[in-house]
Amino acid sequence: MRETTVNDAPPHDQAASAGSNARPVPFRGGGFAPQPRKGVGLVVFVALIALAEWGTRTGFITNLTLPRPSDVLITLGELWDSGLLMKHLQPSLTRLAVGAALGVAVGIWVGILIGLFSYVRAGLVPLVAALFPIPKIALLPLFVIWFGIDEGSKYALIAFGTFTPTVVATYGAVDNVDRGLIRMGQSFGLSWASIVRKIVLPGAMPGILSGLRVSLAIAIILLVAAEMLGAEYGIGAYILEAGSLYDLERLFAGVVILSLLGVIVSAVITRIEKRLLRWRG
């Protein structure tokens, strides 16, 4: 009598045998389940700084194009010791906070209205599409005429610059909410307001927060542009003065401050995401 082998076994037995010996294939990209890799970003950053320091000290990189990172660090220390850092940073943070808060708040509100109401969408989407590609920096002279050369024009420029990308991101996020969840809420007899509050807004929140990252980055860029016109103090005014004197150490010190500001803003949004999006698991 012939012995039964794996090849002679029924198909379902072969599948079970193969399944028991199979190993799971990891998803290499990690996009669906990102794992924290602590210290990797810091290592990359330190490596780039060390490379720049080595290049400027050995002459491979001329000091006319890139200052030594150690000299920039010394300049930052002098700024702190002299008190000029806070004199420039405080008005910049105030302008950024007020302008971005106005633009983001109005942008989210308008974006939600566009996502929920057809008539609002038909009326405002063409207007937003016409305003979005306009370079906001080009409108700074117009804002100066309207609001004066003081703080009003700076707030208006930052608010307008953050408004349009926030609107686009918000109504796009509302549009991407799973319609199956909305129909489920309707089948359970939820009111329109309850569906918006419990399904639409939580479902749109990831897209809104992603758009907020872009909007705040634009706000920092416009902050520098606004402070280069008619501002005595501010990071933008500091960079403009350093550039006019071709003082690369001071210029790069201002750039470092802006970079740190961007990192802090990104970290704050990450904390907000972790708090508001805990339901995603």
Results as ranks from 00 to 15, higher is better:
R2E: 13
V6S: 12
V6N: 10
A9K: 11
N21F: 10
P24M: 09
P26M: 08
F27E: 15
G29M: 11
G41A: 04
G41S: 05
A47P: 13
A52N: 09
G55P: 12
T56Q: 05
F60Y: 12
F60V: 14
I61V: 13
T62P: 03
N63A: 15
I74P: 04
I74T: 15
M86Q: 10
L89S: 05
A97R: 06
A101G: 14
V104W: 02
V104P: 02
L113M: 13
L113E: 03
S118W: 08
V120Q: 01
R121M: 01
R121N: 07
R121P: 00
P126R: 06
A129C: 05
L131C: 06
P133L: 03
L139N: 06
L140E: 07
I149V: 14
S153F: 07
I158K: 02
I158P: 04
T162G: 15
P165C: 06
T166S: 03
V167C: 02
V168Y: 09
D178Q: 00
G180F: 00
L181Q: 10
L181I: 05
G185K: 00
G189Y: 00
S191W: 04
V196S: 02
R197L: 07
R197Q: 12
P206E: 03
S215T: 12
I218H: 00
I221T: 14
L222C: 04
V224F: 03
M228G: 15
L229T: 13
G230I: 01
A231R: 04
I235D: 02
I235Q: 01
A237R: 09
L240P: 00
D247E: 13
L248H: 09
E249W: 07
F252E: 01
G254K: 06
I257G: 01
I257A: 04
S259I: 14
V263P: 04
S266E: 13
I269N: 00
T270P: 00
R280F: 02
R280C: 03
